[in-house]
């Protein structure tokens, strides 16, 4: 059995630039393996191509060279086995919470739909809001709807592109804790893009650190800390600082 959920080999992306300047290299020699059930975060400075990398893996953008295998075969298009969770709200405003969560279940029986929707409403803590419309919810609650909608479709892989980027600090912390718990219950493979180093260390089994453009993988750091993670423990801080240093940043505000 192939244990690799996602496997990118020698991936290069370049976009045609202006005539003189030649093509713009966005990603260079990316080699990435994601094991099944693994939670991997990709961090990097803004503009490093991490969202582009995610878009190539999901098949929204074609690579210039190299190959991407997802669950052993090349990606040809969207597939309900792999669901994408967006930063800007992809929840449908014309559907209620439960209709949104059940969106990917049209082919199931009524009873199954009801049962699955009920389970995920509970899991993301939206009990009592089943009949509410997205505009009546806070940003964090809407993001919970989107995550529940992804989970309800029972995908093997969930891609997340800065899904908590638009939320306030407290809500983000809560969402991370909930996502960790849900991931432990559901055992999905998650590939999570963020620019937030703290976030990556709180969530991931492994953090992939990318360089400035053209984006390359600078370092991959396994995080073997028990969950829920103690954000004050020396081990946590050590990993966090390692990533900061890898990205060439100082932890002292104002330092050059």
């Amino acid at each position: 059995m192939n244990e690799s959920a996602i496997s990118a080999r020698d991936l290069e992306i370049s976009f045609p630039g202006k005539r003189r300047a030649g093509p713009i290299h966005v990603l260079r020699s990316i080699n990435l393996e994601v094991r099944r059930g693994e939670f991997v975060c990709i961090v990097g400075p803004s503009g490093c191509g991490k969202t582009t990398l995610l878009n190539v893996i999901t098949g929204f953008i074609r690579q210039s060279s190299g190959e991407v295998l997802v669950q052993g075969s090349p990606v040809t298009g969207p597939d309900p086995k792999r669901i994408f969770v967006f930063q800007d709200n992809g929840v449908f405003p014309w559907l209620t919470v439960e209709q949104n969560i059940g969106f990917g279940l049209a082919r199931r029986s009524r009873d199954e739909q009801r049962e699955i929707v009920h389970r995920y409403v509970q899991m993301v803590g939206l009990t009592g809001f089943e009949k509410a419309y997205p505009r009546e919810l806070s940003g964090g609650m809407r993001q919970r709807v989107e995550i529940a909608r992804a989970l309800a479709a029972n995908p093997q892989i969930i891609y997340m592109d800065e899904p908590f980027g638009a939320l306030d600090f407290i809500t983000r912390l809560k969402m991370r804790a909930d996502l960790t718990r849900i991931w432990q219950e559901e055992k999905k493979t998650i590939l999570f893009v963020t620019h937030d180093i703290e976030e990556s260390v709180q969530l991931a089994d492994r953090v992939v650190v990318m360089s400035q453009r053209p984006g390359t993988i600078r370092k991959q750091i396994e995080i073997d800390l028990p969950r829920p993670r103690d954000l004050d423990s020396p081990e946590y801080l050590e990993v966090r600082d390692e990533i900061f240093h890898t990205m060439g940043m100082s932890l002292k505000v104002g330092a050059a």
Partner: peptide, 9 residues
């Protein structure tokens, strides 16, 4: 984002 989210499914 609505179209992309829907294509997922």
């Amino acid at each position: 984002v609505y179209v992309r989210a829907a294509e997922n499914f």
